[in-house]
Amino acid sequence: MSTDINQLRSEALEAVNASPDLESLKETERSFLGKNGRITDLLKKVKGLTLEEKKSFGKAVNTLKHELKQSIISKKKNLEQLQVETQLEKDWIDLSAPGKRRQSGHIHPLAQVQKEVESIFQQMGFSIIDGPEIESEFYNFEALNIAPHHPARDMQDTFFIDKAADEKEGRLVLRTHTSPNQVRTMLKWGAPLRVIIPGRVFRNEALDASHEHTFDQVEGLLIDKNISIAHMKGIMQEFLAGLFRKEMKVRFRPGYFPFVEPGIELDMSCVFCDGKGCSTCKKSGWIEFMGSGMVHPNVLKAGGVNPEEYQGWAFGFGLTRLTMMRYGINDIRHLTCGDLRINKQF
């Protein structure tokens, strides 16, 4: 019996060793250890043996089985490694060929900047408010201290809706600024107040590279008991630093807007040259950014806020212009022309 076993061992180990690849190794494994394999067959011969013999024979076969398995595992490892090596030897890929790209969509630059602006102001505790785009003359003008004969109310600047006027509210107009929402918001929420109002506004202006009849503004309003002009400087400096991710300066100049007093034009240090003077800022180091000022007492009153108790400031800047500045877009019409070659750049 033992010679049978020895004979088989050397045959099996020989066969494992001689297997040229994984497939023949598998075949070898099957022929010795499979259901009808030769080692399995050996066990069938135990019938005629004594108990003692059975014991030692069984042990010997199991040892052989174990030994063979180990040898197969190690051979398998060798063959696998060989196969990987051959594979690597053969493999080649065109590294310069293009990757499989997904066709991503694009968010409009105006929306991207709007989101950034909103998020910065939200972090400073400002709420984001929306208001109607079709406004009444009352909210668009009167409530903002813009008298009936003010040049700003000329037909040339304002789109009117073809509808009979209301006795109190006047005609319907496409809002010419986001400012009507100062009063609407005051009436709705009362003081104190910390809001921004981004949105679309309309001017009856002929289209050219820097003028659109449709564009977006951001209105801001801060009303509380001890709010000063100095706070506007602080908040705007903070906002601009957040937006442009660097230290920014602001400069005040006298300006005139009927709904604020004093009226202030706010310039920001030029983002392109950091105030050193370049072609964008016309060598001045400053870029005109927004109109602002302390809310006019008449406007507070129109909003139902007592000017003797509360004070505050308001501002309005062009989101469209800011977007153009951020991306270096030189023609305002690019933003609404719908040419996907433009929109797909953002």
Binding site: F126, I128, D224, I229, K233, G234, I235, Q237, E238, F252
Partner: peptide, 23 residues
């Protein structure tokens, strides 16, 4: 001189702004 006005941050309660869900 407006340039003499300092840049100050207001001392206001740090409460959460109104949520604008639609936005």
């Amino acid at each position: 001189g407006y340039e003499k006005i300092p840049a100050l941050l207001p001392n206001l309660p740090s409460k959460l702004p109104q949520q604008n869900t639609i936005r």
